[in-house]
Design a protein around this nucleic acid. Structure first.
Length: 590
RNA sequence: CGGGGAGUGGCGCAGUUGGUAGCGUGCCUGGUUUGGGACCAGGAGGCCGGGGGUUCAAGUCCCCCCUCCCCGACCA
């Protein structure tokens, strides 16, 4: 088909919109693909909608290819299922809620686990019906605190979500593997580079979970990948190796020192290095020799508040995200000065492990970072203002109530799998595969009868791809200073023909004819047939819009040739007009 | 929600001690141009984010709210 620039609903912008920072947002607005319509909500213009549809089609084809079946739920959902699963409250302010004229509660679906579970419960009741894979491509709503970066984080976005239903864990594993493989194929076809990283299953009660991250500076997710082996994980999910025990038999006994005015790690280390009686002979003390004890508050789902102490090496911070992922479903919030005032056994700035722990004076649960070895000696608080203790040995002088991964992960930390250096990277989550297990099936009562006539709770998996986000990610991965340069598979058109001659000359006729020929070959053609627009504008617009192939019907037409450009490779070929359609149609997809 | 910046024709911006709202681009008309965002002339287009106040007079000063962008918190 032919899309005529003279009539297409399109206006490209000469200047960058000032409120758009990331390249995908800037270029998609400037090239006339999307317009902002609401905070975190975008209107798809004809060009943008074409690309969105093509992305959708590829995803749909790959889902259909593994045997998943498409359904479609309403976006506006009743409260009850979410009430049963607990997410009506768990989702908190992130859920868009509304009421009908009688005051009955509804929500705009942020994700549809409950609805899929109930749908299968409604129709199926036998193991013979399983496995079953269902999916939908649906607008999702989340009241994000801060929508940003155009399509990358909106409050309304398009998502493909699928769900697998199996009789047991082996079945779930097969479903999971099939989806994972389909995702690899999908992202390859979309022309999106990705890293598959281990993610936290957290409160969801599942086991395996992996995210597909598009590595990108403007990404919001931090992950690590090993420089040598294939290990990659979301920072929350990184598990450092257990350290070897240290033989402390020759270590000095713990001794308390007067350390006035040392409320911070830095002041403490300075003091130890500056006093002759505390100085180390072999090297200077550094912050990693100190044990930092941080107190946070946990809010459990039942509303119970519990203080929690976490010990990490003094040269590291507690990564609250990592910690929260491990204490989930509890949430973390600040332990305030008021809380300190109520706990007389805690001396702010001088907290030490001997006061911590369920069996000690504070009776506050005390968790140690996994990196801390049994037998290691520490400088740490002595639970009195202006006092610290040195040579306090873990396993000899103090203990803890458990081990946790709480310290922040840094660039260069050892890989838990092979010991090589980890790299910290950023990415955009474009897909997520997740073994849900029985959580939803159990709470919503999805069971089937097995071969023995016994009731079995169904085991589920859920699998998501951010469709509108993928469009933005593809734009992030495929642009230059001139504009977009789409992969062939998702470009809004296959070829863009620029008529660059003088009005009334033969270039317009040549462009029209070529457009007809390409259209007859089932290609989608953008034809710049606008009147009175200078060639410079046409070139700029073609490059901004970014179809992978651009044909210039200009001064060469007089001698029977057109210029065929490969926007992605940056190459140019002169082709005889008579062969042009054939040539363009045979250009390899990129 | 915390910190920082900003809201003035579609887009990018200026607007002085408070005194009739401007420029560039885009759009319309006519003419000249036509291989890298052309030129001339004439036009249309504004609740100056919203609401209160101060004042003879508010884009400009004061108060409240909303929205957008950046950093952080949050993010099945």
């Amino acid at each position: 088909m032919i899309l005529r620039m003279s009539t297409m609903f399109l206006r490209t912008l000469r200047d960058d919109p000032v409120d758009a920072e990331v390249p995908s947002h800037r270029l998609l607005v400037r090239a006339g693909y999307i317009r902002r319509a609401a905070p975190g909500g975008y209107t798809w213009l004809p060009l943008g909608l074409r690309t969105l549809n093509r992305v959708e089609t590829i995803i749909r084809q790959e889902m259909d290819a593994i045997g998943a079946q498409e359904v479609h739920f309403p976006a506006m959902l009743p409260r009850e299922p979410y009430e049963i699963s607990g997410r009506w409250t768990d989702y908190g302010p992130n859920l868009f809620r509304l009421q009908d004229r009688r005051g009955v509660d509804y929500l705009l679906g942020p994700t549809h686990e409950e609805m899929f579970t109930l749908l299968v419960k409604d129709l199926y009741s036998s193991y013979k019906d399983l496995p079953l894979w269902l999916y939908q491509i649906q607008t999702k709503f989340r009241d994000e605190a801060r929508p940003r970066a155009g399509l990358l984080r909106g409050r309304e976005f398009l998502m493909k979500d699928s769900y697998s239903f199996d009789i047991d864990q082996d079945g779930l594993q097969r479903s999971y593997d099939a989806h994972r493989a389909a995702y690899l194929r999908t992202f390859d076809r979309l022309g999106l580079p990705y890293d598959v990283v281990s993610a936290m299953s957290g409160a969801m009660g599942g086991s395996a979970s992996e995210e597909f991250l598009f590595p990108c500076e403007s990404g919001e997710d931090t992950f690590v990948s090993c420089s040598k082996c294939d290990y990659a994980a979301n920072t929350e999910a990184v598990r450092v190796g257990e350290p070897a025990k240290i033989d402390y038999s020759g270590f000095a006994a713990a001794v308390v020192h007067e350390t006035p005015a040392t409320p911070t790690i830095a002041t403490l280390v300075d003091l130890f290095n500056s006093r002759a009686d505390l100085k180390r002979s072999d090297r200077a003390w550094h912050s990693g020799d100190t044990l930092k004890n941080v107190i946070v508050n946990l809010r459990h789902p039942d509303g119970r508040i519990e203080p929690l102490a976490v010990g990490v090496p003094g040269d590291r911070d507690v990564d609250l995200k990592r910690l929260e992922a491990q204490v989930a479903p509890a949430e973390i919030f600040d332990f305030t000065d008021e809380d300190f005032a109520k706990n007389k056994n805690l001396v702010k700035g001088y907290i030490g492990p001997t006061a911590l722990g369920e069996k000690n004076v504070s009776s506050i649960r005390f968790l140690l970072d996994r990196s801390i070895a049994i037998g290691s000696a520490w400088i740490t608080g002595a639970n009195a203002t202006g006092r610290h203790v040195a040579s306090l040995v873990y396993g000899r002088d103090f203990s803890c109530d458990g081990v946790v991964d709480a310290a922040d992960v840094r660039d260069g930390d050892p890989c838990p799998k092979c010991g090589s250096k980890l790299q910290i990277r950023r990415g955009i989550e474009i897909g997520h595969v997740f073994q849900l297990g029985r959580k939803y099936a159990e709470t919503l009562g999805l069971t089937v009868l097995d071969q023995n006539g016994k009731t079995q709770v169904v085991t589920m998996g859920s699998y998501g791809i951010g469709v509108s986000r993928a469009v933005a990610a593809i734009a992030e991965a495929n642009h230059d200073e001139l504009g977009l340069k789409w992969p062939t598979a998702v470009s809004p058109a296959d070829v863009h023909i620029v008529i660059a001659g003088k009005p009334g000359d033969e270039t317009a006729g040549a462009g029209e004819k070529l457009a007809e020929e390409l259209s007859a070959k089932q290609m989608t053609v953008i034809l710049d047939d606008r009147k009175g627009v200078s060639p410079g504008v046409r070139f700029k617009d073609a490059e901004l819009i970014g179809t992978p192939r651009i044909v210039i019907a200009g001064r060469g037409v007089a001698t029977g040739v057109v210029e065929v450009r490969n926007r992605r490779a940056g190459t140019v070929s002169e082709v005889a007009l008579a062969n042009a359609a054939e040539f363009v149609a045979k250009m390899p997809a990129t």
